[in-house]
């Protein structure tokens, strides 16, 4: 692949990772992060983040589902009748989610038990629906695929950040290994039980949204 910038003639074939495509990838990851910027797909961001390993598995699953279903919708976008497009999107997403659920049950049974209903709920994850509706209904498969990967990764990034904070403060572990030294406990350090419960999730995510938005300089409603 040449490093020259994309030619101006529309007939020229765009490089696989041209600057525009890189932007699509980066957009979801940081500039337009689905969790903290668009505030979408929050349900699972809160529910699966008590431990890092479940949230990593969840994020990888979502990246795969989102990328593949965006690619599929992107390639059949001109044949979908507009009136029934939501149901078509739901059908495509559910097919991938079923596959993901079966794979998790077969190879990662304990994680799949912990994730419980939240794998199935990827179907109604608003992030998935919003990206399909807003991006892949108007863009070719490869761009849509990149958009899915970028947004999925951005989602995963936010999820992992929440999970790291909650697991360290809530259980004193990271990926199941103790990271808070025993001497701290001897001096009266106590795990914060609130972090494992639902209010902790809301607080941590609220603070992460705040942090990201103040770095990015974004103010809602302006």
């Amino acid at each position: 692949m040449s490093a020259t910038p994309a030619s101006n003639t529309p007939a020229a074939k765009e490089a696989l990772f041209s600057r525009g495509n890189q932007k699509i990838l980066r957009d979801g990851l940081w500039d337009n992060n689905p969790i903290s910027y668009q505030v979408m797909g929050i349900c699972s961001a809160l529910a699966v983040t008590t431990a890092v390993n479940t949230s990593v598995v969840m994020s990888l699953g979502l990246v795969a589902v989102l990328g593949l279903s965006e690619a599929i919708i992107g390639s059949i976008r001109n044949y979908i009748p507009p009136r029934i497009r939501i149901i078509v999107q739901l059908a495509v997403v559910s097919a991938f989610v079923i596959t993901l659920d079966l794979i998790l049950k077969a190879y990662f049974y304990s994680v799949s038990k912990q994730l419980s209903v939240f794998v199935g709920l990827i179907i109604t994850n608003t992030l998935v629906m919003a990206r399909l509706e807003a991006f892949s209904m108007h863009n070719p498969p490869w761009k849509s695929f990149l958009d899915g990967i970028g947004n999925g990764a951005g989602y995963g990034l936010a999820l992992t950040a929440v999970a790291v904070i909650r697991e360290i403060l809530g259980s004193g572990t990271l990926l199941g290994y103790h990271v808070i030294p025993a001497s701290w406990y001897a001096h009266g350090f106590v795990n914060n039980g609130l972090m494992v419960l639902s209010p902790g999730a809301f607080f941590v995510l609220g603070l992460i949204v705040w942090t990201h938005r103040s770095i990015a300089g974004y103010v809602e409603g302006k």
């Binding site: 903290s36 505030v39 929050i42 639902s198 209010p199 902790g200 999730a201 809301f202 607080f203 995510l205 609220g206 603070l207 949204v209 705040w210 938005r213 103040s214 300089g217 974004y218 103010v219 809602e220 409603g221 302006k222």
Partner: peptide, 15 residues
């Protein structure tokens, strides 16, 4: 604070 408006503060209240 500006960047807490909307999503952020709603999340903390929900907490």
């Amino acid at each position: 604070p500006g960047s807490l408006r909307g999503g952020g503060i709603a999340m903390i209240i929900t907490g």
